[in-house]
Amino acid sequence: MTEADWEEHLMLQIASRSSDALEKLYDRYEKPLYSFVYRIVKDSMAAEEIVQELFLKLWNHAEAYVSNGRSGKVSTWIFTMARNGAIDWLRKRDRRPAAGGQDGMDELRDPVTTELTVENRMLAEQMRQALSGLSQEQQQVIEWVYFGGYTQQEIADRHDIPLGTVKSRIRLGLRQLRSQLGESWRGEVRS
């Protein structure tokens, strides 16, 4: 049984109101989720709230998730919800960690110690390496867009970069990221 299958199974149990399954999923994701959300909001209280909100949604909507023939993996769903929650929070407070972004990317190179499995840790490590292989400018736009929730226009205005340049940096950044990672990761993710 693969990781993804196991998580699917947990989701089904959660849909059947198994608190035990919810706790298992929580233990699995607490650290990576908290780290990810904290990375975006830079506020421990808010990060905890966002994680709580997410598990509340998960507990109440697992059934819809399970019966709607969803696409993609449980982890993708969870992280997408987390990012939405975190970026919403930033927008509401308008407290996006301004400009810079540089520090963030430096921190990405720290070693990981999550509760996730070896496979995921390897992926995380590959991802970090791939990110650090991007040019400074590409790293920055991805940081602003993905972790900061900024729109292209906001980036152009704030940093005085022509809109077309912002677009091409995002595009090139993503492409670069993909070629850095190669195609090998896809098999692992899919399995």
């Binding site: 919810l22 706790e23 929580y26 233990d27 607490e30 650290k31 990576p32 989720l33 908290y34 780290s35 990810f36 904290y38 990375r39 421990s44 209280m45 990060a47 905890e48 994680v51 709580q52 598990f55 509340l56 507990w59 993609g72 993996k73 982890s75 993708t76 992280f79 997408t80 987390a82 990012r83 921190e107 990405l108 720290d110 990981v112 110690t113 999550t114 996730l116 995921n120 992926l123 995380a124 991802m127 970090r128 990110l131 993905y146 993503l174 990221l177 993909r178 990672l181 990761w185 896809r186 993710v189 899919r190």
Partner: peptide, 27 residues
């Protein structure tokens, strides 16, 4: 799929003490 991996790249942060009990307690 690629974007789905980005969250894993976040540097590890230590959840606040007692977060598990608070979150699961609430949920």
């Amino acid at each position: 799929e690629l974007l789905g991996l980005l969250p894993l790249a976040a540097e590890p942060a230590e959840p606040p003490q007692g977060m598990r009990e608070r979150v699961l307690g609430q949920v």
